[in-house]
Design a protein around this nucleic acid. Structure first.
Lengths: 337, 337
DNA sequence: ATGAAAGCGCTAACAT
DNA sequence: ATGTTAGCGCTTTCAT
């Protein structure tokens, strides 16, 4: 690493400069900033005038050191670049905006080592706490890395964390199957996804089917991508043409639709299709995709809210988010009138 | 705001705890961390052992105070939740990962006041510098808010900033028109966008047309949304059916495609369509959208790189990014063989 | 090679 | 109502 200039930002006026200029002690300046009501109006006015004049901006680093708080909270996500996590981060930011807390977002690429590095870097910065989504770290591990820190976990891959928010993927899968069944579909294929979320969605799907005494038409497992959705259609059509296909992600559903179109099967006339996520693309597909909404921004807001309540001394608790159905135009009732 | 617990994170071992336990001075511990080569191997080993034992993690707040650097850089974007800015932020993060710098991302909702607040909050945190994209602040304003700070500006709405990166929207519009003209389209409509970027794209588009002696079929201005794209088609079809429609955003292009389909006009057989951005949805539309790519991640990386070089003392300079054509399946040659 | 001491910018007893 | 002073965790001269 090269040589870093550091001289430029050095000349910011500090509390002492203000104090001297105003002819008061630094304590008085501090009070003018933090507890103005405890100051003589005259002095206050004089101090604030100097603050203005010098363009004094308090240095939070100094304050943090004595207060033992940075008013920063680390947000650990797999990748801020991805829409889901971007929205999630934005939700946290919105919620925290009302407080004095500022989120610091770090991406891990879903790598355990990078996650450890991230946690460590945030601890070094003495953040007041951590919000982690889709973490791969075991509770003991994270406690070792960030001891005694306020933490909120969203959908950790490894169980046993307190202060959890879980998105109920089982309920989401169940909801999708329920919608298809209620609108008269019988032969329903599922393009499942990986990881816990994929498995949970499949589980909920199967549960609803079994309540009806139905078997899945086909179960195919993909990796959440468009290509996986396209490939799944090949497999499915080898068996026959189902009434409906439920894919565990909107991307896979997009692939499913595209492949069905190519095979000359119109959506939803020939086959109904459902996705999962309510990815921004869902509404833009033609026809717009019926899907299960994961309210990412809301999830972020909820996480922010839970973090705030933790700092205020609230007991550990968990919450569960139940996804909702967004009915658009890729599903269509098969009930005869 | 309620009462915040603060006792939890207080008991982190500090440099003095390590020093005492190892029977050395704090200076030695500091050296063990920062300049291990200047220590007696025996002492070093002993100190590091205690560091391990106690789980000592240096407190960057203290270090920042004495060093006058936080190794943090503020990133000011309109909204981290939007794909473009999320990718941009991710690009910065990737570039900065190799250094000791950590980005702190703040959203402003494109509001001047929020932007001032953001700048101020980041200055309070004593960030080493600022990266701003689509800023609405005048150079003097931002200099007043963040005096003597390293700054990189990307596409500011107000000109006159140093260390700029500009995305050449004129070239992008030119490129789109060029592609359509070279593939034999004559009657070309443009659905323009707002702001400087929208105007620039339109300008480039018109420039290429005029080189050919062509007039635009229609010029309609929308607000970058899907709905604007749909509405534009109504207006365009009032005049007639063009050979091609070039929309200033992929979202508008998606709306254009949808409306054309509804009107019974197949894309690209009846009408070619082009978008702009290479939004993730572009590849997923059916048919996949031909568009102009704004390499958002690359833009972020470039911004990070420029910031790093600034800190290393490099002179102020500007860069321009020229977008590239991504040819997919919504355009089709009208040249007879 | 290591330690003692000063100081980065700030706040909070404590004193007046 | 305001000032004095100590100290938050760390690095860095200056001694030794």
């Amino acid at each position: 690493m090269g040589y870093f200039m550091t001289s430029r930002s050095q000349n910011r006026p500090n509390i002492r400069a203000v104090a001297m200029q105003a002819g008061v002690s630094t304590a008085t300046v501090s009070r003018a900033i933090n507890t103005p009501e405890r100051l003589d109006p005259e002095t206050l006015k004089r101090v604030l005038h100097v603050v203005q004049e010098l363009g004094y901006v308090p240095n939070l680093t100094g304050r943090s050191l004595v207060m033992g708080r940075t008013h920063a909270v680390g947000v650990v996500v797999p990748n801020v670049g991805w829409p889901l996590f971007a929205s999630f981060a934005r939700g946290i930011e919105m919620e925290l905006n009302a407080s004095t807390l500022m989120p610091i977002i770090v991406s891990t690429d879903d790598l355990q080592d990078r996650e450890k590095d991230a946690a460590r870097a945030l601890v070094e910065r003495s953040v007041d706490g951590l919000i982690l989504i889709s973490s791969n770290l075991a509770p003991g591990e994270i406690e070792r890395l960030a001891p005694n820190m306020f933490r909120v976990h969203i959908n950790p891959q490894i169980d046993g964390h307190e202060h959890q928010i879980r998105v109920d993927d089982v309920a989401g899968g169940y909801l999708a199957a329920d919608h298809l069944i209620k609108s008269g579909h019988k032969r329903i294929a599922h393009v499942a996804g990986e990881f816990r979320s994929g498995r949970d969605r499949a589980q909920g799907f199967l549960k609803r089917l079994s309540e009806e005494g139905l078997e899945p038409f086909v179960l195919y497992t993909g990796d959440f991508t468009v290509e996986a959705g396209e490939k799944s259609v090949d497999k499915i059509l080898e068996i026959g043409v189902p009434d409906a296909i439920f894919a565990a992600s909107d991307l896979m559903a997009a692939g499913v639709c595209r492949a069905l179109n190519r095979a000359g099967l119109r959506v939803p006339d020939a086959v109904s299709v459902m996705g999962y996520d309510d990815n921004p693309i869902a509404a833009l597909l033609d026809p717009p995709l019926t899907t299960i909404r994961q309210l990412d921004i809301e999830l972020g807001k909820m996480a922010g809210k839970m973090f705030l309540s933790l700092m205020e001394g609230e007991e550990a608790h968990s919450e569960i988010i139940v996804p909702e159905l967004i009915e658009r135009q890729t599903t269509r009732s098969r009930l005869r009138r």
